[in-house]
Design a binder for these strands. Structure first.
Lengths: 153, 153
DNA sequence: AACATTATTGCAAGTAATTTGCAAATAGGG
DNA sequence: CCCTATTTGCAAATTACTTGCAATAATGTT
């Protein structure tokens, strides 16, 4: 966790950027928050430590971190139209989205990387990232929607 | 292609919706346009046939078609923050995005569905849709960025 | 074929998320 | 400690999409 933070700080330096208090705070906030927060959520949480922190600074910092490859932006269907941000490598690469309760579950699955490599080879492209998103009903919602056979009769 | 249109029309009927001129036009426009157009693009093209067609009608129709399962919405990183729409089943389920030239290539890959089924079984969830997105450099951009070894010396 | 009913449309105004211009602040090198 | 370019806060702007409402038109009924 903090190891990620250190890597991030080193990279920020290497990129020739200035390590301002705001950037440090935003980076730390990203490690403290649960997965895929929105810019508003990062701002709300970081503002607990620096109430002067501006939302546009959060947006600018997140985009800068993204350009440096330190943050991965994501968008989820059914979650309005805002962006979500994760420290690169801090969470599972793939996601399951419940279309009923909007729950988002992360997972990793090496087979996906194998598919990506196969595609890259066959089409002569370079693949830097693979993101699988599954849409469906989570265990709870599925159970509620399709009760056990003969259950309620 | 027109087979898709017919299925769509039947479904619209079955859903109890009225088959208005605008809906027919939007549906036909979706089959005529290249993959994943934005609402603006659908509107622009459809307006060539009915200049009175309003953009909000396009949005409402696309969302309604989505609710009926006839249209699949997508969002691509690096393509601004608008939604893209495709007639369900009209295009490949998965995508490759070139992070340099923004090109989007579609593909199908049965192995992905296998991964989805495996995940569904292990986690007791129901998966209705799986969407894999690969980010990287297309063949052209990869060739331009990393010339053949010893090429320019 | 005219009519009633109610879904759908066009228009204009509204909203949410994000972006930008600019003057003031400040990190980091000399 | 000072200089300069980078970064910040603030407010206004922009983008992509949504909504309220009166007018219009699709479909069942006669």
């Amino acid at each position: 966790m903090t190891d990620l933070l250190d890597r991030a700080r080193a990279r920020v330096r290497a990129a020739g950027g200035r390590m301002t208090g705001q950037r440090r705070l935003i980076l730390e906030t990203l490690t403290a928050l649960p997965a895929h927060p929105t810019a508003e959520e990062v701002h709300a949480r970081a503002a607990r430590r620096d109430s002067a922190l501006n939302l546009s600074t959060v947006y600018r910092t997140l985009h800068w971190l993204e350009a440096e490859g330190l943050v991965e932006p994501r968008r989820f269907r059914g979650h309005g139209r805002h962006d979500h941000f994760d420290l690169a490598g801090a969470h599972g690469q793939h996601h399951f989205l419940c279309t009923k309760c909007q729950r988002v579950l992360e997972f990793d699955e090496p087979q996906v990387e194998a598919v990506a490599r196969g595609y890259a080879r066959r089409h002569a492209v370079k693949v830097h990232e693979a993101s699988l998103v599954l849409y469906g009903l989570c265990a709870e919602c599925a159970a509620r929607r399709a009760p056990v056979r003969g259950g309620s009769a």
